[in-house]
C-alpha cells in the first residue's frame, strides 16, 4: 500500500514538474471574458463585435449613420469579381477552399499540421494563387483585402470558431501569439494589452481604445484613415508603428501567431466584417 502511495507521489511530482506554466486557451478565454465583464458590466458578450461603438453612444450614433451607406461595399463587390475571375489555368479561388470559399472566414486562422504553421485567410488566398501559377498579391491592402472582404461578407453572422489542436506546435504558436500580445515593445514600451486590455474604454487623445475582445470580427475593415479596406495585419503593423516599434512583415510568423491568439480570444462571437472604423 505504502509503495503505491510513494509511486503516486513520485508520478504526481513529476507531472507537476513538466506541466506548462501557462493557462490553456480555454482558460485564457474565460479569464479575458471575466476581465472585460468587470470593466464593462453593461455589455453583453455579443456587443464586443462593435468595438468602441458598443461603449460610447455618441460614436455609435455616428457609426450607425456611416453604416447606412457602408464605405466598404465597393470593396466587397470588387472582391467578388476578383474571387470569381478564373486563373490562367481555368481554376479559381473556389477550387482552393472548403465549401468553395463561401462562409468559411470564421474558421481562420487555423494551424496546418502538414505545413506546421498558422494559416490566415490572406495567406491561404495567396497560396491558392501560387498553387495555380499566379503571382501572389501584396498583403495588407488592395486586391487581397477586397477578396478577403468578400469572403468575410459570406460569413456574416457565423460564429468565430478557431481551434488550437492538441499538438505541441499548434500550442506553441498560440502561446507565441499570446506572448507577443502581452509583451511591451517599441520606444513607448507598450504592449497590445496595454491599450486594448488595461486601457480599453479609456481615451487616448481624441480616441477611445477598443477592447481586444471582438476586434477581429469586423476585419478586413474600412478605416477612414486609410480611405480603403485593410486587413487585420495591416492594423497590427500600424499599431506597432504608433508605439514606435519596427513593424514585422505582414504574414510573418510573428503576426500570424498573434492573429491566431487574437482571433481565438473572440471565439463564439459572430463575424460582422467587413466593418467601418475611424
Amino acid at each position: 500500500m505504502k509503495r503505491k502511495i510513494y509511486l503516486s507521489l513520485a508520478v504526481a511530482c513529476s507531472m507537476t514538474a513538466v506541466a506548462p506554466s501557462f493557462a490553456d486557451p480555454i482558460t485564457d478565454n474565460e479569464t479575458v471574458r471575466t476581465y472585460f465583464a468587470d470593466v464593462f458590466p453593461e455589455l453583453a458578450i455579443e456587443d464586443y463585435v462593435d468595438g468602441v461603438y458598443a461603449i460610447d453612444q455618441n460614436l455609435r450614433d455616428q457609426w450607425l449613420q456611416i453604416e447606412e451607406f457602408p464605405p466598404y461595399e465597393d470593396a466587397v463587390d470588387e472582391g467578388k469579381v476578383l474571387f470569381d475571375t478564373p486563373f490562367a489555368n481555368g481554376k479559381s479561388y473556389a477550387n482552393c477552399f472548403d465549401n468553395e470559399g463561401v462562409g468559411i472566414k470564421q474558421n481562420f486562422p487555423y494551424f496546418d499540421m502538414e505545413k506546421n504553421k498558422v494559416v490566415t485567410l490572406e495567406l491561404a488566398i495567396n497560396e491558392c494563387r501560387t498553387h495555380n501559377g499566379e503571382q501572389p498579391l501584396d498583403y495588407g491592402k488592395g486586391a487581397i483585402a477586397y477578396i478577403s472582404s468578400y469572403m468575410a461578407s459570406t460569413s456574416s453572422g457565423e460564429l468565430i470558431n478557431v481551434t488550437v489542436p492538441d499538438n505541441a506546435a499548434a500550442q506553441a504558436a498560440y502561446e507565441d501569439g499570446k506572448e507577443f500580445f502581452y509583451s511591451r515593445r517599441g520606444q513607448l514600451n507598450m504592449a497590445c494589452a496595454t491599450c486594448h486590455m488595461a486601457s480599453a474604454g479609456k481615451r487616448l487623445r481624441a480616441d477611445i481604445l477598443s477592447p481586444a475582445l471582438g476586434q477581429v470580427s469586423h476585419f478586413p475593415a474600412f478605416r477612414s484613415k486609410w480611405d480603403d479596406v485593410g486587413t487585420i495585419q495591416r492594423r497590427y503593423a500600424g499599431c506597432n508603428t504608433q508605439i514606435r516599434s519596427k513593424p514585422f512583415k505582414l504574414q510573418s510568423e510573428q503576426y500570424r501567431n498573434l492573429e491566431y491568439f487574437h482571433t481565438y480570444m473572440s471565439n463564439g462571437l459572430p463575424i460582422n466584417g467587413p466593418g467601418t472604423r475611424k
Partner: peptide
C-alpha cells in the same frame, strides 16, 4: 537605442505574464 531595445526584449521575455489578467 539598439541596446535599450535588447534590454526591453530581455524584460519582456521574463515579465510578459505580468500584463495577463488573473482570475
Amino acid at each position: 537605442q539598439f541596446e535599450l531595445s535588447m534590454e526591453q526584449a530581455k524584460y519582456a521575455a521574463q515579465h510578459w505574464q505580468l500584463l495577463v489578467p488573473e482570475d
